[in-house]
Design a protein around this nucleic acid. Structure first.
Lengths: 228, 228
DNA sequence: TGTACATCAGTGAACGCGCGTTCACTGATGTAC
DNA sequence: TGTACATCAGTGAACGCGCGTTCACTGATGTAC
């Protein structure tokens, strides 16, 4: 019988250790299997002690989701912070590659944000929506800079329709006054990058595509050539 | 005490009724919650009777996945069967719209194929890979027809590199002798269509995009204009 | 420096629940005569 | 047309399991004097 460990002896920062362990388990078995008891087991503590830090399982999941969004947003910000403000193609390209790099580096985080939701869990939108919005800001900023400088080839996408404008305007008003064309293109570029990354980490690409980064690299260049 | 119902009285085709109920539950609560006991409950039969038709839960899931892939492939085939063979843009566009339509019509099927895998379930690849391959055939066929007719603007994507060729060749040899450019473009177009659809049904688009079909329609046209 | 005490992080037992799967069974059905 | 019987789809009880959550508790820690 070893003596009860001193408080915090094994886990100097237990709330963080709990989240770290949660991430490990999501990586290993997928988000839907996340369980407080399994986390406690791995930390060799008892399950009820988790309740000292998170009032229930859902609040822990929410904390993980927010962390994941912030991590993505941070990665996007970091990708461009050392590039010249007028290096438009460098910035766009860096954001695309950072998006893929983040996904392959942290597939658990990607899975938690974009994958099938956790059973019986409903995300509180007032917390997750702002966190999600942050992740798109760097991309939108770059496209706005390109457009403001007059280099965005808006003739490469069909002219705005009233229907499209009416869908983009609420976002424009609520989201910082970007031009409508900029918002539109941000969505489209995001979806192209996201589509390829999603197929890659979902293992949907044909088995012979052993280096999806090559496909990705070409598609980024294709986007640059098309719109810049 | 009502008398035991006659065999098959309530469920003339029980194996199918089991799958239908499984789909309903996936739609309602997500794939990870799929449970034999819940299916039995909804059918007002007992859980063990399911074992007369599926040897265990995983085999049922596999059957569902195969059905889902076949349903997608059928939808793709049906989308173009009444269009003239040389109506290239009509065919391409129809395939794209059918892809989205299938997804929004059957989000459970989409979720089972492309979503987070079911906990503790591993798909037998010898069954699912061929089913998956079928779904891409109509798209690849159309692109090949366009290329064979000399209308594919291959100059719009960067020239083949040895690395890319080496990844596409095994697929070419195993998959029916399509041209390498055709396979490449099939992947790229698929990923663009898939990316937008994924964001839509994952509820990741900004809230003000109330009609994602509009975005989708424009993106399909953009693809046509770019490559045809 | 030593002692009394309040705090509160972590424990262990217990709750009710749903799960996949097994097993011996039953009784309606279809068939052979 | 009627009877005996084999079949086998569906039952109900039971198994061992893991889950989230609650609760009264304990005992190491930090603080006040």
């Amino acid at each position: 019988m070893s003596p009860r460990p001193r408080r915090s002896e094994r886990h100097p920062d237990l709330p963080t250790a709990i989240k770290d362990t949660a991430w490990k388990q999501i990586a290993r078995l997928g988000a839907p299997t996340l369980s407080l008891r399994a986390i406690a087991r791995e930390l060799t503590i008892t399950a009820p002690s988790i309740y000292n830090y998170y009032p229930n399982r859902d609040e822990l999941v929410t904390a993980l989701i927010v962390d994941a969004y912030n991590s993505l947003a941070d990665a996007q910000v970091a990708a461009v912070e050392n590039l010249a403000a007028d290096d438009f193609s460098g910035r766009l390209s860096a954001l695309g590659h950072a998006y893929r790099q983040w996904t392959v580096s942290y597939p658990q985080r990607y899975q938690l944000i974009f994958g099938t939701p956790i059973p019986n869990y409903h995300a509180p939108e007032d917390v997750t929506v702002p966190a999600a919005a942050r992740a798109l800001v760097p991309l939108t900023d770059v496209i706005q800079a390109i457009h403001s400088a007059g280099y965005l080839r808006t003739e490469r996408f069909a002219p705005m329709t009233p229907r499209l404008e009416s869908m983009l305007k609420p976002w424009q008003e609520h989201g910082g006054g970007y031009d409508l064309e900029v918002l539109y293109l941000a969505l489209i570029i995001w979806s192209r990058v996201h589509g390829l990354v999603t197929l890659e980490i979902g293992n949907q690409l044909p088995a012979s595509i052993v280096d999806p980064a090559e496909l990705f690299h070409r598609e980024i260049n294709n986007i640059l050539n098309q719109y810049l």
